[in-house]
Each structure stands twice: as structure tokens, then as C-alpha cells.
Design a binder for these strands. Structure first.
Lengths: 226, 226
DNA sequence: GGACCGTGTTTTGTCGACAGTCGACGGAAT
DNA sequence: ATTCCGTCGACTGTCGACAAAACACGGTCC
């Protein structure tokens, strides 16, 4: 979290291929909304804009296709996908399944929960700033998944979160607005998790957690896709 | 399923890129064991062997990396990954999570189960041929996942199965050998699923299903990785 | 004798160019 | 006037070549 002082310590030299860099940039523009659903992505345009050849851009697009952030229309060009309401429900269900696997693993393996209290403090510190609060909220959930120590789970969860961010942005859904106190809600989840880890009721924990995830993504005002 | 008569009706011309074809071939060789864990994959060699340029092979390898069938070692060449025992457990847990989400969705949406009875008949027809029985077994589980009607779930489940096939083959694990009757076991799962769909106990179904998946992949003789 | 540096070779990353394919526009025939 | 066909432009898929990075080996210095 804390960056090392460049004057006394050398920074890690960023060694990344142009493919990684292109993917990072395209992903960023998709998730921040500069590229909107339905929009076409021409590799020649992207390549010229980034000042590189088409090859790395093509490979980056293929990776993003696997990640679900772009889709290929009838063997032709790439597009930002448009989402239907049932897609939102599916993504919510997948997210809930992954997080529940994470918490069950945490309970079974008796993994210490210190990092989660820190994550909740970050939520509290975010206050009422919606952007910060959303980031801290997501960080808490991601920390739970990472804590389980299952690398493949963390990987696919990350991809899932990307898709969810895209679908929420595409439909201009502002979740977490209706929740009274984000910190309190997550503190309760953490309490349940801790109780379960100490021999408490796992079933209750799972039900509360699933309810939290599904409710948080149950958006009444989901817009119809383009 | 039934192919159209070529004499009266034209077939669909197979339109596939060289990337798809290369990925298909490499994946096939990995899953059938011609390429073994730890082995290096040089794109120039593969390209020459398939008679194409390096570009499509490179993109195919990148896709397979995302799928978890190959891995890249310190910015250098690709290799078939070697698996540790905990990897097997993780893959089993992920598979169980996905299948449980599928059956819960099936129960909730009241999806008809006709295709599953057909899948069980296929298992019965396979008899004692281990290869056929394993294929029919996998087909049953995959049919369950597809039946849930969640395309992203089916997609990631397919990737998961690929990894599991690789890890089982790498460790030369022959599961399903110890089970007395594959057909009977799955018939019981289907009965529980049907009972749950008609208002029965979902908890019992979930527990039995998870037990089946985890037990089927609990291999006592998991070999240490290379 | 051991560790370090320099060189050579192999392999990968990137580029520019060519060819094939798809969609759109315009013209001709009924 | 409408429909069909032919042509054109644009984009994508693939290729061969070049440049750069990484490993392996041998030599040298301490």
C-alpha cells in the first residue's frame, strides 16, 4: 500500500509486454465508461491511438474477450457487450457462489481475519464519498476471496468483478446508495464470519452473506440493453 | 444432433480461424497426454508442425494460458503446468461450487429434468468400459450445468473441466474405479434433485451432491508434482 | 578452485505488408 | 418501382522478417 521512497530505494521496473499494457488500457477505458456498450473496437484505430502495432492490440482484445469485457460479432469486429437483466442476475449468482466458497474455506481452514478488520476500517474512513465507499466495499469482498488462499478462485473472481463493474456502469446502477451504513453491514458480516470460525453457525453465515450479495446487486431500475 | 443430408441440403461451411484450430489441436494434445506436464512449448516448433505462421499459435497459447492449460514461466516460454495436491482440492471445490449453483438454479426455476434421465441411460449403456463410462459421467454433470441456463456458468465450468482432466491425467488418477455402480449413484442424485424440485429438501440434495463431487475427486494416490 | 563477466545462440516480442472476407453502395433488368 | 447482382472500400487474418531479451557456455580474474 505504502509506496517506497524513490530516493532511498529503487522502484520495481515495470516489465510488461505491450500486450499487457494494451489490455490494461483498453480494460480501463471500458470500465471507466469511455468506451460504451455497443461500441465497435477496431484494432487498427486502437493500435494507432496507442502508438503500437496491431499485433499486441489483437492479442489484448482476444484476452479481453475471454474475460467477458468485449465480444466478437459474427466473426467480425469486436464490440463492448450489452447486457440483459438476466445477465445481471447470473453475475450476481456467480459472485455469491464464489464468495460463499471463500468464506466456507476460511472457516474450515481457520484462517485469521485480521486483514478484514482493516478493510472495514477503510470503509469507515471512506465516509460518505460514494466512489471511495464503493472501492472500499469491493476491496473488502475481494480481500475475503483472497484470504481463502485459492488462487484460481481469486483469479476468476477478479474477472467476475470486472464484468459486474461493466454491467453496473452500462445500466447506470448506483447500488449501495440505499444501504444506511456500509461499514455496519460489513461489520455484521465479519462478526458472523468470526462466530462461525469459532464453532458457530455456518448456515446462518452463508445465508446472510448470500443475501447481502444478491440484495446489493438486485437493481430495480435495470435498464433494457441497447 | 442429426446431420442434414448432404445430397439434398448443403452443409454449413466450417469457418474457423487458424487461432481456433491451433487452440483445438494444442488443447487436444494436452488433454490426451501427448504433451506432458513440465514440457516446454515453443511456438516456432508448434507453428512449423502445424504448417502455419507463429502468430496464430501465439494467440492460441495465450488463450490456453487463460484457460489454465499452459503457463508462462518468468516471461519466458510456455509450459504445461504441474499440479500440487492442493490444486486438486481447489479444483474440486470450484467444481462443487459451480454444480451446486447449477442444481439450486434448476430447483428454483423449476427446469424440467428430462435430459438428465437420458444422460443416465447413456451411463448405463456405457457399461464397464472405463473410457465410455467416464465420458458419460462427465456428460451427465455437464448437462446439469447447462440445464441451469446460465451461459457464463457453463463457460467457466467447461474451462474447469479441462483443468481437471489435465490434473487427473497428470497424476494418473483413475477415479470412478472404486464406485460400485456409476449409474446407480447418479440415479440417486437425480432422484434427490427431482424430489427437491417438487418441494423436497434442498439442503440434503446439496450435501449429497457436494459429497459426490468431492469424494469423486478425492484421490488418495495424488502424486507429487514434478 | 570458485565466482564473475563477456560473448554467442536460441527463443520470444513486435512490426509492416499482403491477401482474403464482409458490408455497403450503385446500377441494371424485370 | 423493386429486386438482384456487381463493384468498391474497409477491416481483419495471416505471414515473413527484424529486433530484443534470456539462457548457456567459456574465459578470466581473484
Amino acid at each position: 500500500m505504502t509506496a517506497p521512497d524513490p530516493t532511498t530505494q529503487f522502484e520495481q521496473i515495470h516489465v510488461g509486454s505491450l500486450v499487457d499494457e494494451a489490455r490494461r488500457q483498453i480494460r480501463h477505458h471500458i470500465l471507466t465508461g469511455r468506451l460504451r456498450p455497443g461500441e465497435r473496437l477496431r484494432d487498427s484505430v486502437l493500435a494507432e491511438e496507442m502508438g503500437v502495432s496491431r499485433s499486441p492490440v489483437r492479442e489484448a482484445l482476444r484476452l479481453l474477450e475471454q474475460a467477458g469485457l468485449v465480444e466478437k460479432t459474427n466473426n467480425r469486429s469486436y464490440r463492448i457487450p450489452a447486457f440483459a437483466p438476466e445477465d445481471v442476475h447470473e453475475l450476481a449468482a456467480l459472485r455469491a457462489a464464489d464468495e460463499i466458497l471463500a468464506i466456507r474455506t476460511i472457516v474450515t481452514k481457520r484462517i485469521p481475519l485480521d486483514r478484514l478488520t482493516a478493510a472495514i476500517e477503510a470503509i469507515t474512513a471512506a465516509g460518505s464519498d460514494p466512489t471511495k465507499a464503493l472501492a472500499a466495499d469491493a476491496a473488502f469482498h475481494f480481500e475475503v476471496v483472497r484470504l481463502a488462499g485459492l488462487p484460481r478462485l481469486a483469479e476468476r473472481y477478479e474477472r467476475l468483478i470486472d464484468q459486474i463493474r461493466l454491467v453496473l456502469r452500462a445500466n447506470e446502477i448506483e447500488t449501495w446508495h440505499r444501504t444506511p451504513s456500509v461499514a455496519a453491514v460489513h461489520q455484521r458480516l465479519l462478526d458472523l464470519l468470526q462466530a462461525a470460525a469459532e464453532g458457530g453457525d455456518v448456515t446462518e453465515l452463508v445465508r446472510a452473506w448470500e443475501d447481502h450479495v444478491l440484495r446489493g446487486m438486485a437493481a430495480p431500475q435495470v435498464l433494457a440493453p441497447i
